[in-house]
Amino acid sequence: MTTQILRISSKYLKPAFVVLSLVILYRGHNEPGGGFISGLLAASGYVFYMLAWNVETALKKMWIQPVPLMAIGLLLALASGIIGVAAGEPFMSGQWITVLNITLGTPLLFDVGVYFTVIGVMLTIMSVILEKVDQWD
């Protein structure tokens, strides 16, 4: 799977996937869409790149490596729950603020957390399956 056509197209498809995933992530705020599906989309952009080139090159292109990305995503999701506790309500109670006519709330933060977690998990799994199964431990 290392033909020139695939390699060139994966180069341009990767950013397209990421942009599309961000659109769907935002759409998930009020309509169908959301963190999980957009995370899968963004991750598949990178997986495509891994298939065309190899795992090392794809991981080098990332600003944050998959495992820390996973941790950051989970931290964001955890934070979205703790904001509710800080407001004196049960864990995960929604809190909302309005900035410039857009209502932002903890569910969005949770979704962003899911987004990062899914990318992290997907890429960890894929890089293990594609290349590093032998270094399981």
């Binding site: 998990v121 799994i125 293990v128 399956i129 199964v133 032998d134 399981w136």
Partner: peptide, 15 residues
Amino acid sequence: GIIAFSLALMYRFYK
């Protein structure tokens, strides 16, 4: 997640 795990497990089993 489970399928991804079991595929990796299968590969390892084979190795």
